[in-house]
Computed example of a mutant assay.
Amino acid sequence: MSLLEVRNLAKHFGGNTAVDDISFDLAAGELLALIGPNGAGKSTTFNMVGGQLTASAGSIRFDGRELLGTPSYRIAHMGVGRTFQIAATFASLTVLENVQMALLSHHRKVYSFWRAATHRFRSEALDLLEQVGMHNQASRPCSELAYGDVKRVELAMSLAGQPRLLLMDEPTAGMAPAERNALVALVKSLVVKRNMAVLFTEHSMDVVFAYADRIIVLARGRLIAQGNAEHVRAHPEVQAVYFGTGKTFEAVAPGGEAS
C-alpha cells in the first residue's frame, strides 16, 4: 500500500488551471522527484500536498487519511515534514538550539522567553545532528555556517517531527554541485535508514537522475511522464519539454553535472 496517494488533483486560480488531473503514489522508503519547467505546476502541487494550498478537485490521502481541507500544522503533526527553498533556521541561535527548538515544537512544549529551555531534548537534538553530519558544529551559531551546512541543520530540524513523509522544496537551491550531491546522498541514506518517503522538487537534473528512485514530470499543469530515470530520460515528451534548456539528460555520476 502506498503511503501517499494523489488522485485527480486539480487547482484553478480564477479562469486559469495551474494543475490539471494529476495522480501519483509514493511508498515508504522511496525518494520521488517532482520536476518540470517553470510554470509546470510543481510548486502548486507541492503546496497542495503540504496543506498550504487547497485543491479545487481530487484527493490526497496520507496513510489512508484524506488531507484535503486539513490545515498545514495538523498535517505536520500527522507525520508530514517539510523543508523550504530558503533554509528556515534561526541565525542567532546555535546549531544545537535550532534543533532543540524544533523538538520543543514537535512535543508542543511552550516556554516563556525567561525560562531556560537549553537542557530540554539535548541528547535527542545531538543524535539528529549526528545523523546529518553536524554533531561537531553543534555549538556554532547558524549565522557562521556555510549555506550547505545550514541546509543540513534544517534537515535535522525537519527530522525532529519524526516524519514518515518529508516534503523538500528545492533542497539544493543555491548550492554548488559537490554540496548538492552530498546533501541528496544524505537524504537518500536517511530514506533507507528510516523507511521514510520523500517527495522533492528540484531544478538540478544531476541530482534528480543520480538519486531519485522515481521521477514524475509536469508540463503546463499536467503529468506527462513518470518512472525511473532511464524511462524518463528517454521519454519523447520530456525531451521536447526540456529541448533548448541545456538539459541533455545524460547519465552522470554522483558529484558530476548534467549538461
Rank of each mutant, 00 (worst) to 15 (best):
L9R: 02
G14W: 02
N16A: 14
I22M: 10
S23Q: 11
D25N: 15
E30R: 03
A33R: 02
G36W: 01
A40Q: 05
A40H: 00
G41F: 00
T44H: 13
S56I: 07
I60T: 05
I60Y: 02
D63E: 12
G64R: 09
R65P: 04
R74L: 11
H77I: 08
M78D: 06
G79S: 04
F84D: 07
Q85W: 04
I86L: 15
A88G: 04
S92F: 06
E97G: 10
V99I: 03
A102D: 07
L104I: 06
S112G: 14
F113Q: 12
W114F: 11
A117W: 15
A117K: 15
T118F: 05
H119I: 10
S123E: 14
G133D: 04
H135D: 13
N136Q: 11
P141F: 07
E144C: 11
A146D: 09
L155G: 04
M157C: 13
M157W: 04
R164P: 07
L167N: 05
D169G: 12
E170A: 00
T172N: 11
M175V: 06
A176P: 12
P177N: 02
E179N: 11
E179A: 11
R180T: 09
L183A: 05
R194S: 10
N195Q: 13
T201M: 14
E202K: 01
L218P: 05
I224V: 12
P236N: 01
Q239W: 01
G244P: 06
E250D: 14
E250Q: 15
P254R: 14
A258F: 09
A258L: 13
